[in-house]
Amino acid sequence: MSFLRKLLAVINKDIAAEMHTREIISAMLVFSLLQLLIFSFALDLHAAIAETVAPGVLWATIVFAGTLGLNRSLAREQRNSCIDGLLLAPMSRSAIFFGKVAGNFLFMVLVEAALVPLFSALFGVALFRLSVLLVLGLGTLGYASVGTLMAAIAVNTRAREVMLPVLLFPLALPVLIGAVQATGGLVSGGSLVDVAAWVRVLVVYDLVITAVSLVTFGYVLEG
């Protein structure tokens, strides 16, 4: 079996499990809708300020909702020792890692697909552009990557729900800064060239963090 097919097998397993339980997507979706509600009251989000604060609100929503999905995705492996089954399967740790990252990325993107049109409609901000979607994808990829590693650690701790954001947020800071700045630049009328520096931050972060997470992921699983 080639690497790609093993990878797809892990993703398929996650999708199949999600189709049965719907626990990851539903949790993230409902939570992000509630966050939108809270942010619109907390910040008094009307058209005049929407353009300035929208990128921050959007990414805060994604980051917070993301921890829910990441936690569940790895807690699912922990339950009934599913992770042992995965480790026994004839595939490398990197296939497991990339499979889990891809699954988490997919679930987060699905939630964003619902969030973005709603966000545009509610706050009158044009997010449905290819450049914004690219930034969303890059930011989500880096977040899902480091998030998968941190969730794999956090589910083995005593206070798992608390541990994940505590571990993850300070490490995801470059993603958050880069993504908010790039989205902000695009929303206020700039093109991809104008926000190239921030896109570069995201790309570099994605590459570096995926490489480091890949190398260390095996050590988290063993034992």
Binding site: V146, P174, I177, V201, T216
Partner: peptide, 21 residues
């Protein structure tokens, strides 16, 4: 094991955070 992994990943993100900030 866990804290070694965290110590490594954390240290790698610090320069990235520095440039972003």
């Amino acid at each position: 094991r866990f804290s070694s992994v965290y110590g490594i990943v954390a240290f790698v993100t610090v320069p990235l955070s520095w440039f972003a900030i």
